[in-house]
Design a binder for these strands. Structure first.
Lengths: 207, 207
DNA sequence: TCTTATAATGACTGACTGATCAGTTTTATT
DNA sequence: AATAAAACTGATCAGTCAGTCATTATAAGA
């Protein structure tokens, strides 16, 4: 039975997804035709639909890939013993990821997805899940910090998490628009700002 | 000559734009057909093109409207004598604007515009101009605060402005996605965080 | 009332698109 | 080498859309 190997199948799938990513990044989701993806990937029109049941599925697959990568960042930050250091690491890692030019295509498609999430329930679910993951990672760090007495007890962890995630998201927007964002400087500001949430003991430990 | 009055013409234009806003908010820019706008506005297919040369022009017009409204917010914040109070007012005003359900349609279309800005130069220019306006308003406030000795001199005003704008943008995203964002709580966090940028003198004056 | 310049209409079109499927090629096994 | 099951192809289709234009309606001045 000439079923191609799982590896071969995965390669084909990636070949299509890579092409789709480039197309979506360049032309946007709606202005990318399946013919474009055919041209860019080198596979035929029909093959597209052997690997994805619809064009939407391709964006969704790209979205999942992205969230998997973000999950790694969050897990990495959790590893840090000191929760404050973990928070700082998260900021650092996100900044690093954003300055990396090679990942810009993915970011651009990500932003397309943010808009698409407004009307496509499956993409909405995917975006919200990714958001929740990062948010919960931050909440855990904050709560740990409150437990150790490094972070002020009256701080609302949920609100901090939402605010920090919002900042990350906004910076992504500005970067993909080609703005000259001084990411290290913004990182320092966020660093300073988080200082405001700490107890005197917490401040002593992280400076 | 039955040239209609300027007022009548403006009314018609708004009638079309209002309909377009509802359609774009509901279905997204690309999935909204001119037929949809015709149905929603009550004018004919042809009339659309007497007021706008292309569908893109309608988004652009909506974008301009939005920025005009945001310019008012920024101007309002500048009026404040104390620059720290001005900053806080800006946060407050943006939070208020976001909680207002009536403006949600506009926000949703705004997010569509953020994605569209990636590939449409005119929308890009419009978005960047709106961004720059708010950013510069914040920079001015920070610089005034540094001048009065309320804000630490070593703070980079540009970086603060970018970071704050980013946070606003991210909160917009989360709100339009229907997330249960506790905006007052987030406002308090931002309030606290800005405290980290102040001199002891500055902190004394704003609490 | 009549004229005329402009506003409004809506049926129409040509270009394009996502998806399909009958036929062809490839590949592992016998 | 023969076989058959699965992978792949690309021409094709049914449907859709932004924008046009010949025609009709309207309003203001003569």
């Amino acid at each position: 039975m000439p079923k191609i190997s799982e590896a071969k199948r995965e390669t084909r799938r990636q070949q299509i997804l890579d092409a789709a990513l480039r197309c979506f990044s360049r032309d946007g989701f709606h202005s990318t035709t399946t013919a474009d993806i055919v041209r860019e990937s080198g596979v035929s029109q029909g093959t597209l639909y052997l690997y994805f049941t619809t064009k939407d599925d391709m964006v969704l697959a790209l979205s999942e890939d992205r969230h998997q990568r973000e999950a790694m960042l969050s897990a990495l930050a959790q590893k840090e013993q000191d929760p404050i250091k973990g928070l700082m690491a998260l900021i650092e890692l996100h900044g690093k990821g954003l300055s990396h030019d090679a990942r810009l295509d993915g970011r651009r498609v990500g932003v397309q997805g943010w808009a698409e999430a407004l009307r496509n329930p499956r993409i909405h679910a995917s975006v919200i899940a990714g958001l929740a993951m990062v948010r919960e990672a931050i909440v855990r760090l904050i709560e740990r910090g409150q437990h150790t007495g490094q972070i002020r007890a009256e701080i609302d962890p949920e609100a901090v998490a939402r605010t920090l995630v919002a900042t990350f998201q906004g910076l992504v927007l500005q970067v993909v628009w080609g703005e000259a964002v001084d990411l290290p400087a913004c990182g320092r500001i966020m660093h300073d700002m988080i200082g405001a949430l700490l107890t005197p003991a917490g401040r002593a430990s992280y400076n």
